[in-house]
Design a protein around this nucleic acid. Sequence first.
DNA 1: CGTATGACGTGCA
DNA 2: GTGCACGCCATAC
Length: 84
Amino acid sequence: MSFKERVFAVVRGIPRGRTLSYKEVARRAGNKKAYRVVGNILNRNCDPEIPCHRVIRADRSIGGYNRDVKEKIKLLKKEGTILV
DNA sequence: CGTATGACGTGCA
DNA sequence: GTGCACGCCATAC
């Protein structure tokens, strides 16, 4: 089980209407200091099975998206995600 | 195997 | 309040 697999598992387990920061995901994955790797992995492998759009920066910033940032924002608002 | 990269995070100017 | 630079770890090439 590689770190990226754990990251995917965590991201996949994010309930709808909730967002987790890269740092939070990394923390759940086991390595809270690998928050950079989280974004890195998602970027390199944004599987459609993974709600990677529910992962945002710690300061609630959208950060970026493999496709289009606007699409990410749209998805979050559409799902009623808490984007304070 | 070694080097470079990156959707980050925090601190300081 | 905004912008720049540094640090840190796993993945990809």
